[in-house]
Amino acid sequence: MSGINFFEKGEGQALVLLHGFCEIGAMWEDFANSLSDNFRVICPDLPGLAGSELSSDSLSMEEVAVILEEWMEEQDIQNPIVIGHSLGGYVTLALTELLGPKLKAIGLFHSTAFPDNEDKKGMRDRTVIFLNKHGVETFVTSFLPPLFPENRREELNQEIQTAISQAKKCSLEGLIAFTKAMRDRKDRREVLQNFAGGKLMIAGELDSAVPIEASQAHKTLVTDYVELAGTGHMGMVERKAETIEIVRNFCLKHSS
Rank of each mutant, 00 (worst) to 15 (best):
V82Q: 10
S171A: 05
N117F: 03
S142V: 09
I81K: 04
A163W: 00
A163V: 00
A209V: 11
V91M: 06
T92F: 01
D116A: 07
L144E: 07
H110D: 07
I129R: 14
T127A: 09
E154I: 12
T141C: 03
A181L: 11
L99Q: 04
N117M: 01
E150W: 00
I129H: 14
I106S: 08
K121D: 00
F139Q: 11
L131Y: 10
P101G: 15
D207S: 03
L175G: 01
D116P: 11
V128T: 12
S111Q: 10
E118F: 11
R152V: 15
P146C: 05
R124Q: 08
D119H: 05
P115N: 02
N194L: 13
E118P: 14
C170F: 06
E150Q: 10
L172K: 15
L103R: 05
F195I: 09
Q166E: 14
R189K: 14
F195L: 14
L156M: 13
R124D: 01
L175N: 01
G88V: 09
E150V: 10
M123A: 08
G197S: 12
I176C: 03
V136A: 06
S111Y: 07
R126Q: 14
T112Q: 08
G122R: 09
R185V: 05
N117T: 10
K180Q: 15
H85N: 10
K120I: 07
Q158N: 09
E118M: 06
F114E: 13
Q193D: 15
G135Y: 04
Q161K: 11
P145Y: 00
L200T: 12
I164P: 04
P80M: 08
N79R: 13
G197K: 07
R183F: 05
I129Y: 12
F178H: 11
I106L: 08
N194D: 15
T96D: 06
K169D: 03
N151L: 12
I83Y: 06
A105S: 13
K168N: 10
R189F: 07
L131K: 13
I106R: 13
T96F: 00
R124A: 06
T96N: 03
L108S: 09
H85G: 02
L93K: 08
T141I: 02
H110S: 05
K104G: 07
